[in-house]
Nucleic acid binder design. Structure first.
Length: 322
DNA sequence: GCCCGTCAAGGAGTA
DNA sequence: TACTCCTTGACGGGC
């Protein structure tokens, strides 16, 4: 029997004034004449974001949600080249420690999804270096939180550059330039335009990286439509991970706008997945990527409860009974 | 207080 | 080659 644990992304539609991603753009930063004052403002924003992350975790705990993606925008402008030399951690160490301790003591799984500007297979050295900087930022946040950085950042393989095969090989070449500590962070996800599950498996199996299977992306972009033919291989990419297999669940907004995320998740689609993989592995952590964030999770749970084969193990985890 | 343009990034897609 | 769009939540100017 497989335990399916549900989680959601970055922010809650239920908590008021709890944004974990307040920001200041570089344009605004530049307009503040006193640079020290501007940096102090950035630090106050970062502290507020971390404080709101903690509020979110407490909200999650109240609903048995132990799986959560943190916003990558906790510290605004942390990786901006004009702020090189700014020790952005110094003012937030205690806040990060408190956040990490809360997560650890409540046995919560936290991770990140840096945005699509992390491009490891870029032929442009400057873009590769910026990508490293962004990953290092995530590494340092986790380190300060006291969380083992192993398999905590998921992102895509990168650009196609008019030649997918060459670009896949360039990912492998560039991987050797990634510091070992940063390599440990990485999980790879199939995307909806360029790299399919098959492409990702090629890389993940070669470089020993866990594959985060995104069902919605697979439906939009695949080599073989039936994802189940890949399932054994997907599971195997997780065999050396200290964490349970993770995947992404979302539904298309509409037939016309297929790639966009809908407000909620189609329970039938999810149930079909559950039925197919049940028993294949001990636990699967399913990240709900829907516009209505935690409300989408709550609604999915309500829909699942109706099903005769579903057993609610907690308020946000289920098993399937034949 | 609401509306909507702007911000920030790299790549894909289109003309 | 040059442009728009994609994505995201928040900012901030205009009314």
């Amino acid at each position: 029997m497989t335990l399916f644990r549900l989680g959601y992304v970055a922010m809650s539609v239920n908590l008021q004034n709890a944004s974990p991603s307040q920001t200041m753009t570089y344009k605004t930063f530049k307009q503040i004449r006193d640079r020290d004052a501007a940096i102090r403002k950035l630090e106050r924003i970062a502290q507020s974001n971390i404080h709101n992350c903690l509020r979110l975790l407490k909200h999650n705990k109240a609903h048995d949600m132990n799986f959560f993606r943190l916003s990558s925008r906790i510290v605004p402008l942390a990786t901006h080249e004009e702020l090189n030399g700014w020790d952005y951690l110094s003012g937030i160490k205690d806040d990060l420690k408190e956040l990490g301790s809360y997560a650890e003591s409540n046995n919560m799984r936290l991770d990140f999804h840096p945005d699509h500007f992390v491009v490891l297979n870029s032929p442009d050295e400057a873009i590769f270096k910026t990508s490293m900087k962004v990953l290092k930022y995530h590494y340092l946040l986790l380190h300060q939180m006291g969380i083992d950085p192993m398999h905590r950042c998921v992102f895509h393989l990168g650009g196609r550059y008019d030649d997918k095969e060459k670009s896949l090989e360039r990912f492998i070449e560039n991987w050797s330039l990634v510091p070992k500590g940063i390599q440990k962070l990485v999980m790879i996800e199939n995307d909806d335009t360029s790299y399919t599950v098959e492409n990702c498996l090629y890389i993940c199996e070669k470089l020993n990286i866990p594959l985060v299977f995104d069902l919605h992306h697979h439906l939009a972009n695949h080599d073989v439509g039936d994802w189940h033919v890949y399932w054994e291989r997907i599971m195997n990419t997780w065999s050396h991970s200290p964490l349970p297999l993770k995947m992404h669940i979302s539904s298309p907004k509409s037939r016309e706008d297929f790639k966009s995320h809908a407000d909620f998740v189609d329970a039938e689609m999810f149930l079909d997945f559950v039925k197919k993989v049940n028993g294949s592995i001990e636990q699967i952590d399913c990240m709900i990527e829907a516009k209505q964030k935690d409300d989408a999770l709550f609604r999915l749970v309500e829909d699942l409860k109706e099903h005769p084969n579903i057993i609610m193990e907690t308020e946000s985890s289920i098993t399937w009974k034949d």
